[in-house]
């Protein structure tokens, strides 16, 4: 870990100002990932801006019936919030499938989006990694890639985004509100993270100096028929090999709307609205679910140790949708 300076910001504006004033400054909130990365010398910021005092700790109902999650609400407080449990149980379940109770108590909703990949090579400065050191090469492509991506990969990077929460937010079509040197703007969840392409060092589409202030959930929380199925190497405290956030709006056996987002398979939560559209007006059957799975996995490519995901993911999608269907029938 390198030497760094530290300040604590009291307002969003000073936080943005502080970040701009330093060469390689980073925000720190829960610190559940940045501190690990600093100890491994993967991140070496010259300055940390502590944002835990910013007034972004509220969960409030929006005029359109949606719910606003302040960026600094902890994962635990979000998962156990009565409104989230009642109206967005998919989000609650997804958060609780991630990390451990101790980590969820510290980690914030905003910070969760900024988790960096758990690629073994990214974490080990003794090995080349394009995400950590652009141009040095990707060790995972021909290396040990059990946890790596099968969709949206590039020749430069096959890392996955590790967040569970982001997968549910993608399925729910959340909106991310950010502030930055040029004022406020919003990004759809689908536009927040990015694929690695030839710039794997960038995990998301934020501009320099921007900070997430809230995550806004739309009114429809798919509270009746949903599931988050996370497949991993042990029952807790392990990242997803494949995960599925599934949400359905059913009328009897007929699907009015479907959402399916995948985790553990790409550099960002993997969603394809055109695949989901295949279910619109269709019966909730395994056969139909398999079609969606096929469409979602189109173009999947394995790299050896992770090739099993091409088989596992469709099975997980079908199972998650079956379980979502069986929850409640109107």
């Amino acid at each position: 870990m390198n030497s760094f300076t530290y300040t604590r910001a009291e307002t969003v504006d000073t936080a943005i100002g502080e970040i701009k004033a330093h060469h390689t400054a980073k925000f720190i909130a829960g610190g559940t990932n940045i501190l690990d990365l600093m100890k491994e010398n993967v991140e070496r910021p010259d300055h940390l801006v502590d944002i835990t005092r910013l007034p972004l700790k509220q969960i409030e109902t929006l005029p359109d019936g949606g719910l606003r999650l302040g960026a600094l609400v902890t994962n635990a407080d979000t998962a156990y919030h009565p409104e989230v449990q009642k109206r967005y149980p998919l989000l609650s379940k997804t958060i609780l499938a991630g990390a451990s109770a101790q980590l969820r108590n510290m980690a914030t909703d905003g910070g969760n989006l900024f988790q960096r990949t758990r690629c073994y090579y990214f974490y080990d400065t003794a090995t080349p990694c394009n995400k950590r050191e652009p141009g040095s090469g990707c060790s995972a492509i021909n290396g040990f890639n059990r946890i790596h991506a099968i969709l949206g990969t590039s020749e430069h990077c096959i890392a996955t985004h590790p967040s569970d929460m982001a997968v549910a937010l993608a399925a729910l079509e959340a909106t991310i509100r950010v502030s930055g040197p040029n004022g406020e703007r919003t990004l759809a969840m689908a536009d927040f993270h990015r694929l690695p392409g030839d710039k794997p060092q960038y995990d998301n589409n934020l501009e320099a100096g921007e900070i997430v202030t809230s995550i806004d959930l739309p009114a429809n929380g798919f509270a009746n028929n949903y599931n988050y199925l996370k497949l991993r190497d042990r029952s807790s405290y392990a990242f997803a090999l494949v995960s599925v956030a599934a949400a359905l709006e059913l009328e009897g056996d007929t699907i009015r709307e479907a959402r399916v987002a995948l985790g553990g398979v790409a550099h960002m939560p993997w969603r394809k609205p055109e695949a989901e559209a295949l279910l619109k007006g269709q019966k909730a059957t395994k056969e139909n679910f398999r079609k969606v799975a096929e469409a979602l996995l189109e173009g999947a490519k394995g790299f050896g140790a992770n090739t099993f995901k091409i088989e596992l993911a469709p099975r997980a999608i079908v199972r998650a949708l079956v379980m979502a269907t069986e929850m409640k029938k109107k």
Binding site: R118, Y123, S139, G143, S235, A238
Partner: peptide, 19 residues
């Protein structure tokens, strides 16, 4: 990783024991 001769899951997050 036999190319590097290096253990890649050298932490308790990725070296799995039961929880």
């Amino acid at each position: 990783d036999h190319d590097f001769g290096r253990i890649m899951n050298h932490n308790l997050s990725e070296y799995h024991v039961p929880v």
